[in-house]
Design a protein around this nucleic acid. Sequence first.
DNA 1: TCGATAAGAAACGCAACGTATCTATGAGAG
DNA 2: CTCTCATAGATACGTTGCGTTTCTTATCGA
Lengths: 221, 221
Amino acid sequence: MREPVASGRTGAPRRRGDELERAILDAVWAELAEHGYDRLTMDGVAARARTSKPVLYRRWPNRVELVIAALGRNAPDYREPPDTGDLRTDLAVFLGSLLRRFDDLPVDAVHGFLVDLMRDPQLRAVFRNGLAAEGPVDTLSAIMRRAVERGEIDPARLTPRVVSLPLDLLRDAFLMGGVVPSDRVVAEVLDEIVLPLLGVPGGPASSGRTGGPPPSDTPTP
Amino acid sequence: MREPVASGRTGAPRRRGDELERAILDAVWAELAEHGYDRLTMDGVAARARTSKPVLYRRWPNRVELVIAALGRNAPDYREPPDTGDLRTDLAVFLGSLLRRFDDLPVDAVHGFLVDLMRDPQLRAVFRNGLAAEGPVDTLSAIMRRAVERGEIDPARLTPRVVSLPLDLLRDAFLMGGVVPSDRVVAEVLDEIVLPLLGVPGGPASSGRTGGPPPSDTPTP
DNA sequence: TCGATAAGAAACGCAACGTATCTATGAGAG
DNA sequence: CTCTCATAGATACGTTGCGTTTCTTATCGA
C-alpha cells in the first residue's frame, strides 16, 4: 500500500478561500517584519505560508499588489478625525496617528515599499490616498473646516495646496529621511509652516514661539 | 574550451581612460533617452558603448552610480543664483532652471532614476544636494538672504525648514506626480506658500498677516 | 458518489545583475 | 625599438527572483 507522499508529510489539511488568504497575508506581514520589503520574495512568502507561488499569483498579479493587500489588511485604520476643539491639537493627533500606522513594521520595510509604489502611476495614487478607504486629505480638510467654523482661521486660506501641505511635507520628510518623522518634526511643520499659513495666532511669525519647539502636547495613543 | 577570438574583429581602435569613459557616459545618456531608467541595463550600456560589462564595473560599482556619473557629466549646471533685485523673480528663475536641468531626457527616465535614488540613504543625500557641486539649498538660502538685506523680508522667518520648503514641495510634486512641475505649479508654491510664509506682501494670504512684515518700501513687481 | 474547483509541488524560461577568466592591445619605460 | 604591464574587450558563468506552466490530488458541494 502506497504512502500518501506529500500530504502525509505536512499533516496539515489543505486550506482554501479566506482561510488560505489570511494565512498568506499574515505571511507577507511576517516576511516584511523579518526581512523588510526589498528582501521579501514571492518564494519566501509562499514558503512561510506553506503554500506555493501559483496560489499567490492566482490572487495578486505581482509583489507590490500582494504587499498592498497585506498592509491594507493588517494595518490599523487611523481613527475618526479627532475633534478636540483646537486646530493644532487636532492636526497633531491626526498626523501622529497616520505616521504610527505601520509602527510594528521595521522602518526600512515601509520605506522600501513606499519607494516601490512611486514607480507606478496607479500605485502612487494608492500612496496618496494613504492605503486606506478614506483619503487623509479629506480628513485634513474636515479638520480645517471645523476650525473655520470655530472662527479659528479664515476660510480664504484653505486652498487645496495648503490643506494637503502637512501631508506633503511629512511624506517628503519620510521619503528623504528614511525615518518616520518624529513628533518634533510634526511640531515644526505645524508651528513653522502650516499654522502660520493658516493665520493662526501664536505662530513664530507673530509672537515668541520662534525659539524652541513648543510644548509637545502630542498625545501618545 | 574557449576559442581564440579573431583579432581585429571590430576594427575599431581600442579606447582607454577618459575617452572610453566619455563614450560610456554618452551611451548611458542615450540609453536613458531611449529606454528610460527602468529599462536601462548594464548590458545595454556596454553594447551601445561598444565595450563590455567588466569595463563598466571597473569604474562604477552598480547601475545607480553609473547613471549618477552620466547625469553629473551631461546635465547642464544651473546658473549662478539669479539676482534681479526681486525675491519672487529670483526664486522663480532659480527653481525653473533647476526643474529644467534634465529636459532633454524623457520624464520617466528622470523620475525612475530619482525613485531609485531614494532606496539608498547615501544616494538620497546625492539627490538632496542636487547632483551638483553646490547644493541648491545653499543657493536658495543665498537668494533669501539677499532679500533680507534689501529689506524685503524679516530674517527671523528664515528657518532651515522654510528655506528648503520650495525644494521640498517641488520634489514631492515631481515624485508624486511623475511630471516635472509646471511654471504654474511653481507659481502656486511661491504665491500660496513660500512668499506668504516669508511675509512678502502681495501674496494671497499676506494681507493682515500676524505680526506682519516690516513696513515695506518695496515697489510692487 | 462524483465531478468541478482550486491547492500544492516542481520545474521552466527569462531577464538582469555582478563576477571570473582569458586574450589582445597599446602606451610607456628602458 | 622592444618588452612589459595595466587594462580593454569578449565570453561565459553563477545567482537571484520573477512570473508561468504542467500536472497531480485534495476538498467542496451538488
